[in-house]
Structure formats: C-alpha cells, structure tokens
Simulated assay, not measured.
Amino acid sequence: MTIEVVDPHDLPRLLEWNAVLRDGYASGRSHVWSRSDEATRSQFHHPHPTRVSVLLMAEVAGVAVGAAEAHMRPGEPADVEIAVREDCRRRGVGRALLEAVRSALRGAATVMRAETSTEAGVAFARSAGLDVGTREIRQIVELPVPENRLAGRAGAPAGVEVLSWSGRCPDDVLDDWARLRSQMSAEVPSGELTRTLETADVEAVRRNEQRMSAQGYTLVRSLAREHGDAVGYTEILVSRADPEIGYQDDTFVEERARGRGIGRAMKVANLRQLMTVPESTASRILQTYTEPGNAPMLALNRSLGFEEADVLTVLEGPLG
C-alpha cells in the first residue's frame, strides 16, 4: 500500500479521490447528500484564504482503496474525514490514512474532529483516542413536498413577515443576515466539542455567497421579521450540477421569539421558494440534521414529512 498527497490541480486525480470519499461516506446509507465533482473542483482550485487542506489517497497495486481529507484553520480543531472502499476494510487502510493525516498536520493543529454515521466508524475513532462530542439525527423528506401538507402549516404569527429569495442576500437584509448568522454560531448546541465561533460580518457573507456560487450551489433563503426586527432565518442548498438531493442547512430563531411558530412559517415559506428554483425540478430528496435534544425542531420537521434516516456522531480528541 502507498499513500500519496493528491494535487488539487490534477483534475482527474482530484475527482477520483472525491469519488472514493463520496462512496465511503454513502456506503450502507440511503439518500446521502455529497459534494459534487463541480463543487470539488471549485473548492480546491479556489481555496478558502484562511484554511489549510490535506488530501490523501491510499492505493494497492495502483488501485485506489481509501482516501482522506483534513481541513484546518489556525486555533481550531482540524476536521478529518477518512473513507475506505467497502471491500478493502479491516486491512489497516484506515489506520494508515489516519497516521498519514496526523503526520501532515503535526505542528499545525493539536485537536482533530471527525464525523461518522456508523457504529464501526465510532469504534474506529474511539480507538484513535477521540471521544463522542455530539450526535445529530439525519432526517429526509421526498420532494416536492405536497402543497396540501404545506398549506396546513402555513401562516406567520401576527406582526411577523417572512421574506424569501434565491441567491445573494438583498442589500436591505444583509446586515440582519450577518448578525443572525453570528448568533447561530454562538448559540448552536456543540455538546462536548470545542466551540468554534464564526464571525459573519457583511463582507464574510458576501465572500461565502461568491464561493458557494462558484462551487455550483444555489442558495434558497428566508428571513423572518417581527414588527420590523429580524428574528430568524433558514437556508437550503441545491447543487446545480447534482440537484437530486438538497441540503437544509441552518434554521435559527432568536430565543426571545421562539415557541410562536416563526420557525415553522420560515421553513414552509422556504420550501415553497425552493419549488420556484429551476434546479429543484430535478430534486428528489431534502435532508437535514437536528440535535436529538431539539424536540421542537424534530417535531416540526416530522410535521412537514421528514423521516429519520440515521444518526451522525461527531467525535473529537488530541491529534497526536
């Protein structure tokens, strides 16, 4: 077995590497959202200015059997993903890739974080010195969501308006969107994980929009205002190159405005907005992740037709 660094500018090699990761991530699971080839090319040809990435491929006799990626920003845990072809597991490939990642990151990071949706993955991460930090339930719903299901849950509380759009934030809500994104980063449950705060000022929001568009994603967004004050937002991502599975990203409502149906009104409005996006005509599944203790959001998602698919476990531990 050999382990080599993947040059992100070698496009055939990069896409082969991404296919190994994608197949490993989806193995044994149904309807799994993953990074498209277009997004992969754009992500690594136009890297985040503050992030260091490591891409590794394991081969036996010239055949790819496993892959790993790690991303790190100064002062934060390194995010690590390792995938091994299903017919090549339990042969030391994953362990070899892990040691290669550790070697590549040594001196640049002290903590690593990994995600897995299998008990075998949890056992492997634990054996590497990582501890469970948090878990999230993956829920999926078939698209399009029937209008009669949405109509029965539509309508915002008195004094609340919901604005919906696709793509860039309109200028008149940009400040509100940035503020709410920063609040979400500070308040989202992180369990036993190291909390990493994302400061989303207006410049950061615009940079992220540009990167996501370059990677082939359409952003479908809604924002709620109560008596003119922004109190919540929600966002869905659809890949223009691979739209079959959409991804419901953040849904956030300020604590002072919770429990009054604002989150429901935003999600219904955003699902309706999704149906107007041309790419969504090829979308068949929408998936989202919710923390098990967030009973109101789990119940809201179920009322919209989401069903539980599997559980994501996030683990963290020393790099060394």
Score class of each variant (00 low, 15 high):
198 E>P: 03
257 A>Q: 00
16 E>R: 01
291 E>P: 04
199 T>N: 05
177 W>V: 14
57 M>E: 10
24 G>M: 11
259 G>W: 10
128 A>G: 08
102 R>M: 05
196 T>C: 15
107 G>Y: 07
189 P>S: 10
81 E>G: 06
141 V>S: 08
66 G>P: 00
107 G>V: 06
172 D>R: 12
260 R>F: 09
184 M>F: 15
58 A>Q: 09
88 C>D: 12
264 R>P: 08
62 G>P: 11
234 T>H: 09
287 Q>H: 04
91 R>G: 13
125 A>S: 13
256 R>S: 14
210 Q>M: 10
107 G>L: 05
17 W>M: 01
67 A>E: 06
291 E>M: 14
230 A>G: 04
111 V>K: 04
174 L>I: 08
146 P>H: 03
115 E>F: 12
303 S>N: 11
55 L>F: 07
246 G>L: 04
268 V>R: 09
120 A>K: 03
16 E>Y: 02
53 S>K: 04
73 R>P: 02
102 R>T: 09
70 A>G: 07
239 S>M: 01
20 V>L: 03
281 T>A: 15
69 E>P: 00
54 V>S: 03
54 V>E: 12
225 R>D: 12
33 W>V: 12
146 P>C: 04
146 P>M: 07
292 P>V: 03
170 P>S: 10
182 S>V: 02
152 G>E: 06
128 A>D: 01
198 E>A: 12
267 K>S: 09
319 L>S: 06
66 G>C: 03
88 C>S: 13
41 R>S: 00
177 W>C: 07
274 L>M: 14
314 V>D: 05
183 Q>M: 08
60 V>K: 12
108 A>T: 09
174 L>A: 15
14 L>V: 02
193 L>F: 05
192 E>G: 15
205 V>E: 05
163 L>K: 07
300 L>K: 07
121 G>D: 02
18 N>A: 03
146 P>W: 09
255 E>V: 06
104 A>G: 05
16 E>Q: 07
310 D>M: 05
107 G>N: 06
108 A>C: 01
300 L>I: 07
282 A>N: 10
33 W>D: 12
21 L>G: 13
95 R>P: 00
157 P>Q: 06
76 E>S: 14
7 D>L: 09
12 P>S: 02
54 V>G: 03
176 D>I: 10
234 T>P: 02
304 L>S: 13
20 V>A: 04
270 N>P: 08
174 L>Q: 06
111 V>T: 14
52 V>S: 11
202 V>E: 15
114 A>C: 05
283 S>A: 14
171 D>C: 01
298 L>V: 12
51 R>Q: 14
46 H>A: 06
56 L>T: 04
181 R>K: 15
280 S>H: 08
289 Y>W: 15
170 P>Q: 11
60 V>T: 15
214 A>F: 00
11 L>Q: 03
68 A>S: 11
165 W>T: 10
158 A>E: 15
249 D>R: 10
110 T>Q: 14
79 D>C: 11
27 S>T: 13
73 R>E: 15
38 E>R: 00
12 P>R: 00
302 R>V: 14
52 V>C: 03
100 A>T: 11
107 G>M: 03
95 R>K: 14
